[in-house]
Simulated assay, not measured.
Amino acid sequence: MMKFLQVAVIGVFSLCALTGYSAAQTFSDAFAGFGSNDKEPIQIEAEELEVEDKTNSATFKGDVVVTQGETQLKTQKLRVFYDGSASGTTQQKISRLEAAGRVYISAKDQTATGDEASFDMKREVMVMTGDEVVLSQGPNVVVGNRLTVNLKTGKADLQAQKSGRVKVLIQPNSLDNN
């Protein structure tokens, strides 16, 4: 059953890509920017920032907005883990991001919402969880409780652990080329 759900989610967004929909961008591409894209700077805005050198982390709180290229993340709390010291002269590399408090991620016409999300930059994996994890591309929507995206391969796995069922809504003619 899980294999079918995985194939269904990948199929919906791969179909969008194969038909040229949204400049042939797959949904997982929306997540690939954060930390792994060395060409685009990461801009973070928040009401508060705490830097913790002992744990190599920084915590942003209050209406946090992260932007890298065309990808944007919004949340209430974001903890950024990095390799190296924040006060050192070498550039830090982000190793992990943890977002909590109604997470919203968008890139072009693609969005994902959930309660929490984590990005493991070393493993190149993003996991989003919540009562409802909602993915949308244009008018098409997929709903579950746990989304795992391999940022390197583009493989996406959406599960509905609470209800046992993933919901998919595809609007007629939404995949047609314009």
Rank of each mutant, 00 (worst) to 15 (best):
K74P: 03
K74W: 13
T75R: 01
K77H: 11
L78F: 04
L78T: 03
L78N: 02
R79S: 11
V80M: 08
F81L: 07
F81H: 08
G84R: 15
S85T: 07
A86S: 14
S87K: 11
S87H: 10
T89L: 14
T89W: 11
T89D: 15
T89M: 15
Q91F: 08
Q91D: 06
Q91N: 09
Q92D: 06
Q92T: 11
Q92H: 12
Q92P: 02
Q92F: 09
K93H: 13
I94N: 01
S95I: 12
S95V: 13
S95N: 12
S95G: 06
R96W: 02
R96Q: 07
A99V: 07
A99K: 03
G101M: 06
V103A: 06
V103N: 02
I105C: 09
A107W: 04
K108H: 12
K108L: 15
D109Q: 14
D109P: 10
Q110Y: 09
T111V: 12
T111K: 13
G114E: 02
D115I: 03
D115T: 08
E116P: 01
E116T: 08
A117I: 00
S118A: 11
S118W: 12
F119D: 04
D120C: 00
D120E: 00
D120F: 03
M121C: 11
K122G: 08
K122Y: 00
K122I: 10
R123A: 15
E124L: 08
V125H: 02
M126Q: 00
V127C: 05
M128A: 10
M128G: 02
T129L: 09
D131P: 02
E132R: 14
V133Y: 03
V133I: 01
V134M: 09
L135E: 02
L135Q: 01
L135G: 02
S136M: 14
S136P: 07
S136E: 14
Q137G: 14
Q137Y: 09
Q137S: 12
G138V: 00
G138T: 00
P139D: 03
P139A: 07
V141G: 06
V141N: 05
V142L: 01
V143L: 09
V143Y: 05
V143F: 08
G144H: 06
G144N: 00
N145W: 00
R146E: 13
R146M: 14
R146L: 15
L147M: 07
L147H: 00
T148G: 03
T148C: 03
N150I: 08
L151N: 00
L151G: 02
L151S: 04
K152Q: 15
K152T: 15
G154L: 04
A156T: 07
D157S: 08
D157N: 11
D157K: 13
L158V: 04
L158W: 04
L158G: 03
S163F: 08
S163R: 10
S163K: 12
G164I: 04
R165H: 07
R165M: 09
V166N: 01
K167E: 03
K167R: 09
K167L: 08
V168F: 05
L169A: 11
L169V: 12
I170V: 12
I170E: 04
Q171V: 15
N173T: 15
N173C: 15
S174C: 09
L175I: 10
N177P: 11
